[in-house]
Design a binder for these strands. Structure first.
Lengths: 334, 334
DNA sequence: TTCCTTCGTCGAAGCGCTTCGACAGGCGTC
DNA sequence: GACGCCTGTCGAAGCGCTTCGACGAAGGAA
């Protein structure tokens, strides 16, 4: 293994000079820096991560806690994780993967052993048991999602409330008067996951504001047909649907069509989902994008600022971005 | 931060004794061990990961390289990753997440900086550019999937060839004579991904051996309808289908039914996919399980053995496990 | 009894890096 | 010209842990 003393000898300087040339924490003359860089290249030097972490009190590793529970959309999680890793690499950090099942112990462990410098926690619940811990831990952290109170924490997410509103308002502008929200599976609401509730709130508030009649339907991933039938039965005047349930989107559209409704002629459908998904449905769906990659990148950027000692806002709500596609149209008077 | 000297003082022993009590690398009297453990508990001691890595030349971290490319089934990857993390934790290791886009540099980097002790590489291609690197790197590694030659490497995977055979043989036993394989998207074959090719080989070989007529159809994820139509047009005598393409499974079954074929009365369908998926289709599918969790666990176990210095077999092929469900039946003579 | 082991513990020497204080030399200022 | 002040570099002191060699005590073999 080639170490810093080898580089120093080769460049004709002291190890500390090599270190400073690398970190830029003290001025080094251009000429010396060049010699050091050459030596590093020639010897193929790579600083030892453990030694660096020990002496520098920074491991340059972030922990990412991913959810495992049912009802979450796996590709979205994965896309998020990849974006976190990619962004972290741009800041010369690596990412340690933790699963939710180690729970709070996992967080304490990686924090206490100084394995990581900071934490990213996904799938935060309104009243998440990890919050007190995160508040006392002296590691910086960023949460994906919003608990009841984000006081003393840093949270990022799509503004789901605004997303719900945007869908309704879009339908309102198109003349629809009766709308339904087909939501996540019931267990997601029972868990009090913030984002699911926010959508409901935004949806309901906007519908009320626009004087529309609205209903909400939590829904299991394989219950497309039943929900479609139920909706038509209970709400014959329904002309607008908002879907906030990724795996259900395509089946639900299929079910409506099988029940004789044309999209968008008879029924306008909007969704809150990744753009990719919205575009892959047979009738491309007008949707508010679920920007996992952006959220991931943003989370890392916030964390880097915090590690620098820069203050960051407690909450970062990404504004919804709606893309009109083929699945929505003006209400045709029956 | 509480450190080993604090523990030592509290227990009335030297730091080295604490270290040995913890690692078990030298005999320690029961009484001393007890005092040390008490001190650790009382003080809440956690060894510093960096210091440990520096002195002990082991970071207790594994790198997991996950694929990002199109055509792979994301939930399967995720399930695999989770299983790797869970198993690694059982051996007191953590998992660093690397994405494929850092490529070989990522591997060299984490190896050279001694950030990790070992590597798990997913989505290996027949002629993977990373192979020479993995052979020369002195870190132990395990590959998921099989390249052309696994010489000097350690590879684990489902025995995809046998899986392909099992599907065909199952159909053969049921009296089917004309079968088709609906495979992964063309790009997967172009990339020479081993597992996809193995399925084709097994499928074809078994069909030949059984005197069946067989064809193979790589297929894009959204081309269900087209493929179904094409199959019926080009092979009117077709009565058995093997699907090796997760996202396509449900749509393909739907398409067949829409074309007037009942499953399994008119057409028997088998698949190679996660059990979970096979069970979630409207007609539960007879399938060979894609045991991501087992593969992940096995990969970690092999790695742990290698880290111990134990020799392990170069290739570990998990035998296919087939579960009969509702989608296959005896061929009804037309 | 003597000698050789084994057991249980300690002290000290590192692991490879960062960082602090020091200092030499060059510059601008009054 | 004396002074202070940057600029650029060095040496040394750790960071918290593991491990090696040493050593006293206890036990067994001869």
């Amino acid at each position: 293994m080639v170490k810093i003393t080898d580089v120093a000898r080769r460049a004709g300087v002291s190890p500390s000079t090599v270190s400073y040339a690398l970190s830029g924490k003290r001025p080094i003359s251009e000429e010396t820096r060049q010699r050091v860089e050459d030596a590093i290249r020639e010897l193929g030097y790579r600083p030892h991560a453990g030694a660096r972490a020990l002496a520098g009190r920074r491991s340059n590793v972030l922990a990412l806690v991913v959810p495992l529970r049912s009802g979450i959309h796996v590709p979205t999680v994965m896309q998020f994780a990849v974006s976190v890793v990619t962004t972290a690499r741009r800041y010369d950090h690596d990412v340690l993967l933790l699963t939710q099942d180690e729970g709070e112990h996992g967080l304490t462990r990686v924090a206490d052993t100084a394995l990581v410098d900071a934490l990213i926690v996904m799938d935060v619940q309104l009243d998440d048991p990890r919050l007190p811990l995160l508040r006392t831990l002296d590691l910086p952290s960023v949460l994906i999602g919003f608990p009841v109170s984000s006081e003393g924490l840093t949270c990022v997410d799509l503004d789901f409330r605004a997303a719900g509103e945007a869908c309704v308002e879009h339908l309102a502008r198109l003349g629809h008067r009766v709308v339904a929200l087909v939501g996540s599976p019931p267990e997601v609401y029972v868990r009090q996951t913030a984002f699911a509730q926010s959508v409901v709130q935004g949806f309901t508030a906007a519908a009320d504001r626009c004087g529309m009649s609205s209903t909400v339907h939590p829904c299991e991933p394989d219950a497309a047909r039943e929900v479609a039938e139920q909706l038509l039965r209970e709400q014959p005047a329904l002309t607008g649907v908002v879907v906030h349930n990724e795996p259900l989107l395509q089946p639900l559209v299929d079910a409506f069509e099988q029940l004789g409704l044309r999209v968008p002629a008879d029924l306008s459908v909007t969704a809150i989902c990744p753009d990719e998904l919205a575009e892959s449905v047979r009738v491309p769906i007008t949707s508010v994008a679920l920007p996992s990659a952006e959220v991931g990148a943003r989370a890392v950027e916030l964390l880097m600022k915090k590690l620098d000692g820069t203050a960051v806002p407690e909450s970062t709500l990404l504004p919804p971005r709606m893309t009109e596609r083929a699945s929505t149209g003006r209400r045709t008077v029956a």
